[in-house]
């Protein structure tokens, strides 16, 4: 660039030369931008920071009452977290094993219930009545202080 400048002084077409120079340097800036932008965007960590989710924060202990259930998004799968009447925390896959509906906790009956075909699971995830062919997959619940964590069973 330096050299170009030195020689430019001798040019009889100063304005034309300057115009070219602006185009070239403007272009180079734009080029640098269009290369750097994707790279910088790439470097910015995505929302889901890891390839595969191994555990999620389900919430605080005081957010879930005794004898109730709560839905937690575990990656792309729903998980149902249950706090039983005896104050035990359990988590199961919330996908009904019959036809993939989402199950819920039924307080009156004390079971995990699927609204689609009245399938019922006990609080160990075992299918006890209705069409579900097999139990719900269980997840591990870890309590750290006030925080409830759910992770895959190994």
């Amino acid at each position: 660039m330096n050299e170009i400048k030195t020689h430019a002084e001798f040019s009889p077409h100063e304005s034309k030369r300057n115009f070219l120079k602006y185009i070239l340097s403007g272009g180079l800036f734009a080029l640098a931008g269009s290369i750097l932008y994707p790279i910088l965007a790439y470097l910015n960590p995505p929302k889901q920071g890891e390839v595969e989710i191994s555990s999620v924060k389900a919430g605080k202990l005081n957010e879930i009452e005794k004898d109730s259930g709560m839905m937690v998004k575990f990656g792309t799968k729903p998980v149902i977290l249950i706090r039983t009447a005896n104050d035990e925390l359990r988590a199961f896959s919330a996908t009904c094993t019959h036809l993939d509906c989402t199950v819920q906790y039924k307080k009156e009956m004390g079971v995990i219930w699927c609204a689609c075909h009245n399938g019922k699971y006990d609080l160990n995830g075992r299918n006890v009545s209705g069409p579900p062919p097999r139990p719900l997959d269980e997840y591990r619940v870890i309590v750290q202080g006030e925080e409830i964590l759910i992770s895959k069973k190994v």
């Binding site: 729903p78 996908t95 036809l99 993939d100 509906c101 989402t102 609204a115 689609c116 075909h117």
Partner: peptide
Amino acid sequence: LRDVRQARLQ
């Protein structure tokens, strides 16, 4: 889409 499926089943 899971929820849509569920709504249809229901």
